[in-house]
Design a protein around this nucleic acid. Sequence first.
DNA 1: CGTGCCGTTGATGCCTATCAAGGACCGTGG
DNA 2: CCACGGTCCTTGATAGGCATCAACGGCACG
Lengths: 240, 240
Amino acid sequence: MTKRPMLPEDHPCQTCHVSAEALCCALDADTLSDFRNQGGNVCIAAGEPLFHQGDPADCVFSLTSGVIKLNSILPDGRRQVIAFLFPGDFVGLEAGERRNFSAEAVSEVRLCRFLKGRFEGFVSRYPALADARYRKAAGELALAHQKIVMLGRMTAAERLASFLADVHRRIGRKESNGVKLIPLPMSRGDIADYLGLTKETVSREFTRLRASRVIRPRSLALVEILDPQRMQELAYGIAA
Amino acid sequence: MTKRPMLPEDHPCQTCHVSAEALCCALDADTLSDFRNQGGNVCIAAGEPLFHQGDPADCVFSLTSGVIKLNSILPDGRRQVIAFLFPGDFVGLEAGERRNFSAEAVSEVRLCRFLKGRFEGFVSRYPALADARYRKAAGELALAHQKIVMLGRMTAAERLASFLADVHRRIGRKESNGVKLIPLPMSRGDIADYLGLTKETVSREFTRLRASRVIRPRSLALVEILDPQRMQELAYGIAA
DNA sequence: CGTGCCGTTGATGCCTATCAAGGACCGTGG
DNA sequence: CCACGGTCCTTGATAGGCATCAACGGCACG
């Protein structure tokens, strides 16, 4: 993170690690300070909901740490995870009066919260913020299009490979020896609901990727990529 | 359409039937006239491409009549129709340097074309236009989320019902006696690629909807809804 | 050391894809 | 006017991939 010298040393944004990608980076220091005073910090434990389908959408959030999943649930209980959100992502781009999906913390999560009305005021006063918001939405739209292709036309193996490649791109780490690691804070069931599969199928595909030496699980929540090229081929270079 | 008295009688926007939903409606008459001079009209015959995957994205379009499909094609030839676009929809919200998908006319199509650079200039000069663009993108994002649920968790029958309900909402007509009609300018193969199915499955599901008296096809391209309630139930009220 | 949750593995079945053939529609040309 | 070929749609037979049902195993927790 780049320091922002105009801010007081104890300003919460001083310790934020996502200013590079977050919406806030569209604002200069003075404005940012003003902006931050509009909302507050939120911290949510793993498994706890942020909001539910149908709730009034009266605030928006910027995710600073942790992972969130967005769920859509059909009347008969079938569940689809629409997206996993990572630090730097924004919650509330959809602009409806009510939430079309629920949001739940996958791991412990920190967010900056802004009241929607005040946020809108900022957007109209600062064109750079409006532009950043549009570009976030456009980026989300492109991701959604890729996910549509994945769900419509890919096999189970390809879906899992796309997912792993995508998570690696977003929150992957490299060890000092160059080994690529993928943290997987979400459960197998969550992954299944994200990929349009069942947890059993996801489990089987994990086993097959391990058997074919493409990945090596260090634990349930941490996977090492042994063969990045094969992984990219399976995913057709598309990060789901 | 509402007349725009400030425009010259022969101005092309005077005969545009989509000003209510189109992006242009964010502009007043003076600005609109200026705006329209930036681009030009385009007319494309059914089946002809507007652009291809990978092309430089140097212009954006507002669709005024006809239907367009957006295709994404995997290296091995599998095809997914990402969206059908109807009059009032906008092409080029994605904001990338290159096209992530191809666009092809399903029926004869008319569009207003704008050079991207000049369009961006207008967006930065007219906040109302920027806002309208954001709301279009947010709306597309919400639609994409619904489509993700459909592709991830719905059966073939539910997918087709969702599709028919959606097309009806967008371009459906009512006869004087109240009968609801759905025009289907796209082929069965296009519908299949949109729903993540094969044309054979789509055909079979059409037959089953007909057999159970939910719809009555007048021709391949025009379907009458006999039982709107049953249709909505099958689609879970979700327009795909 | 149980208990419970989550993940894995196995057996079976169903939904949709695939392969194949026939039918409807349309434009062209005899 | 009808024969003809082509394209798209429909219908049938079969196969395959993933879901479902069921049992087992690992790990954390009290």
